[in-house]
């Protein structure tokens, strides 16, 4: 229901999907690549995040005294020193009087650019480059893998993006791409293109999938759950003659 003021939750929508398009032109871009019926299609999209705050309003909690003055949070150490939790600077809240640092086994400080991560087998883990498009190395996401609706539902969505076509696409490319998404979804079973995604260069990547909703391409990003089924465990202990003999012997003492 783009443009409607009331959501199906009964709350007021502050921001409809159509309005997101107005923000698109200066946003990050993602280039997708899909091979379909012998042709390669590479649409380039702007990526605009859709958040609960944009949809329903920005929400925060404030503590005030009886006169309405704001109360601030701070930390108290064991030696009675008080550290501000946040300070205001240039109109923004920035972190306060405590800082987290890395130290080595000898207690020396280690700069953040001097650390690396290793996996469970002690192999060095390298940062994955960002999935976003940059003109220098023409980064693109290859759409090869598809997931079923159930597999997509196994992803707990952390970030939602709406993809708006950039000006360099021709209409045919975008229409063809939307048609591909529709045909994949209408198959048996329903499927959705899925890929690994990270907004910034990172040591880990999120799972993402594409959906076409009301003519807009949505990218939903999150962590994936392992599927687990439950069964009834019936444990009936059969009593054998040997058990009865043992039982009688024990009783005899």
């Amino acid at each position: 229901m783009p443009g409607n003021d009331k959501s199906s939750f009964g709350t007021t929508i502050q921001f409809s999907i159509d309005k997101l398009e107005e923000q698109a032109s200066n946003r990050a871009r993602i280039k997708l690549h899909v091979d379909w019926e012998g042709k390669s299609i590479e649409p380039l999209f702007h990526l605009v995040s859709l958040t609960e705050e944009k949809r329903y309003g920005y929400r925060h909690f404030e503590l005030r005294d009886d006169d309405g003055n704001e109360i601030k949070q701070a930390y108290l150490s064991v030696d009675n020193r008080i550290f501000p939790r946040q300070i205001s600077f240039n109109g923004k809240k920035v972190s306060g009087g405590l800082k987290r640092i890395y130290i080595d086994g000898q207690g020396n400080t280690v700069e953040r650019n001097q650390v690396q991560r290793v996996d469970y087998e002690n192999n060095l883990v390298h940062r994955y480059p960002s999935s976003l498009f940059n003109e220098k190395d023409e980064t693109m996401v290859h759409l090869e893998k598809k997931v079923t609706m159930e597999e997509a539902l196994d992803i707990d969505v952390k970030y939602t993006y709406v993809l708006f076509p950039t000006e360099i696409n021709d209409d045919d490319t975008i229409n063809k791409f939307k048609e591909i998404l529709t045909r994949v979804e209408q198959g048996q079973p329903r499927e959705y293109f899925s890929f690994l995604f990270n907004y910034r260069a990172s040591y880990s990547r999120y799972h993402a999938f594409l959906q076409l909703i009301d003519g807009h391409v949505y990218m939903l990003v999150g962590n994936r759950n392992e599927m687990q089924y439950f069964k009834q465990e019936v444990e009936i202990e059969e009593v054998t003659e040997d058990d009865i003999e043992d039982f009688e012997l024990e009783f005899g003492f």
Partner: peptide
């Protein structure tokens, strides 16, 4: 839910 990869430890470069 899990990331695609999970790192375990942070070491000196």
């Amino acid at each position: 839910a899990k990331n695609a990869e999970e790192t375990r430890r942070v070491v000196k470069r």
